[in-house]
Amino acid sequence: MEWKTHGERQVYTNKWVNLCLVDVQQPDGRRWEYHVVRLRHLAVAAVVNDRQEVLMMWRHRFITDSWAWELPMGLVEDGETPEEAAAREVLEETGWRPGPIKPLIYAGPPTEKNESDRIEWIPLSEVRGMIDRREVVSSGSLVGLLYLLMDEAIR
Rank of each mutant, 00 (worst) to 15 (best):
E2W: 09
W3V: 07
W3C: 10
K4H: 12
T5H: 08
T5E: 15
G7H: 13
R9I: 03
R9Q: 14
Q10M: 12
V11D: 07
V11P: 01
N14W: 14
K15Y: 04
K15F: 06
W16E: 11
V17A: 13
L19S: 00
L21A: 07
V22G: 03
V22I: 15
D23N: 10
Q25C: 08
Q25D: 02
D28F: 13
D28Q: 14
R31Q: 04
R31Y: 01
R31C: 10
W32N: 04
Y34F: 13
Y34N: 08
H35A: 14
V36A: 13
V37M: 14
R38I: 13
H41E: 15
H41R: 14
A43Q: 02
A43V: 02
V44L: 01
V44P: 00
A45S: 11
A45Q: 00
V47K: 00
V48H: 09
N49H: 01
N49I: 01
N49K: 07
D50T: 05
D50S: 04
R51W: 11
R51M: 07
Q52C: 03
Q52G: 11
Q52D: 05
E53H: 14
V54D: 05
H60S: 08
R61D: 10
F62V: 06
F62R: 12
I63P: 09
I63G: 05
T64G: 12
W67Y: 11
W67F: 09
A68Y: 08
W69P: 08
W69M: 08
E70G: 14
E70M: 03
E70I: 03
L71H: 06
L71I: 02
L75K: 09
V76P: 00
E77L: 15
E77G: 09
P82Y: 09
E84P: 01
A85I: 00
A86C: 13
A87I: 02
A87K: 09
R88H: 05
E89P: 10
L91Y: 05
E92V: 03
E92C: 09
W96R: 02
R97P: 01
P98I: 06
K102H: 13
K102L: 14
P103N: 02
Y106I: 04
G108V: 01
G108E: 13
P109K: 14
T111H: 05
E112N: 14
N114S: 12
N114Y: 14
N114E: 14
N114D: 12
N114W: 15
N114F: 13
E115Q: 11
S116P: 12
D117W: 05
D117R: 01
R118M: 06
R118K: 13
E120K: 11
E120F: 04
E120G: 11
W121N: 12
W121Y: 14
I122P: 08
L124F: 15
S125N: 15
V127E: 04
R128N: 04
M130F: 02
I131T: 07
R133L: 03
R134L: 15
V136P: 10
V137P: 00
V137R: 13
G140Q: 02
S141R: 03
L142F: 07
L142Y: 02
G144N: 00
G144A: 00
G144S: 11
G144L: 01
L145S: 09
Y147A: 08
Y147H: 02
L148I: 01
M150Y: 05
M150P: 01
M150H: 12
A153W: 12
I154A: 13
I154F: 15
